[in-house]
Amino acid sequence: MKISLGPIYYYWSKERVYQFYKKIAKSKVDIVYLGEVICSKRREIKLRDWLEIAHQLSAAGKEVVLSTLTLLEADSELKRLNRITQVNEYLVEANDFAAIGLLSKQQKPFAIGPSVNMYNAQSLNILFNKGLKRWCFPVELSHETLTSIMEDKNSKLETEVFAFGKLPLAFSARCFTARAYNLDKDDCQYKCIEHEKGLLLSTKEDKSFLIMNGIQTLSSSTLNLINNLEQMKEIGVDIIRINPQSEHADNIIDIFRDVIDNKVSSADAQSIIDKLISQKQCNGYWFEQAGMDMVELAQSMQ
């Protein structure tokens, strides 16, 4: 199995992003998804900068994929999407049906991200015939569903599973970060850049619950499927995806690599991760439970 690094969901400064990918270039990651997928107002990094980072990562032997915006609203966003779909050097990850339409019209191969709803093999096979090369399993589905889909989807279609990171849970027209500052979205003052991990949302009894990241809502718990990699191999998963946080992305990648290569046991890897990650972890979706649940290894074996 290969390891991919998903697109950065947060708004980081240009300098920070360049630093981040410099580290990633030295990690054991195989595939890197690049691009702004949340908010088109975030302009620290322009398409030409992303392409520059892409060249650097390619030179370091990484496969680069360009990711598109998830929620398209304005015409200017469609125009920007158009420009990305016209880049010929890299595969494009479509994150909505406008991108899928534009890429399939140009008869270009493409990948799809976790927020394109593919819940059955019939849907996947339609897109396969339109040029779909790789799909990312929706995060809210279970391993049983994945197993069934794998039996009926075209065998040439690569399967990627979101295995580590904050779960992308929702997108909105509303900017929750601007709202938290009592600002209009049109005058958001780019507050997201002050929150490199997003804004934590807790319940009234002070339990961490969600993360607001501009128009996106994420889980506050970190998805961790390190204990389920063997199962993924058996099902035939091609790639596991890790989503970047501001810290430890390169360490996490290397830990997953070692477990996949049977150099480190998943139990040992789990204890290393426990030391790195202070927030709660979750894996409930994989077991057809509430996404925020954590099914412990012993329970999952029963």
């Binding site: 998830t70 929620l71 927020s115 709803n117 819940y119 995060v139 809210e140 779960l167 849970l169 929702a170 997108f171 909105s172 027209a173 969600l210 809502t217 889980s219 409930g284 979706y285 057809e288 439970q289 509430a290 996404g291 925020m292 649940d293």
Partner: peptide, 18 residues
């Protein structure tokens, strides 16, 4: 939230609109 792209409900309960 954008309909069809919100799984907050299943995050807390295991059941979503989708």
């Amino acid at each position: 939230m954008v309909e069809g792209r919100c799984i907050l409900s299943s995050y807390a309960t295991g059941r979503s609109p989708n």
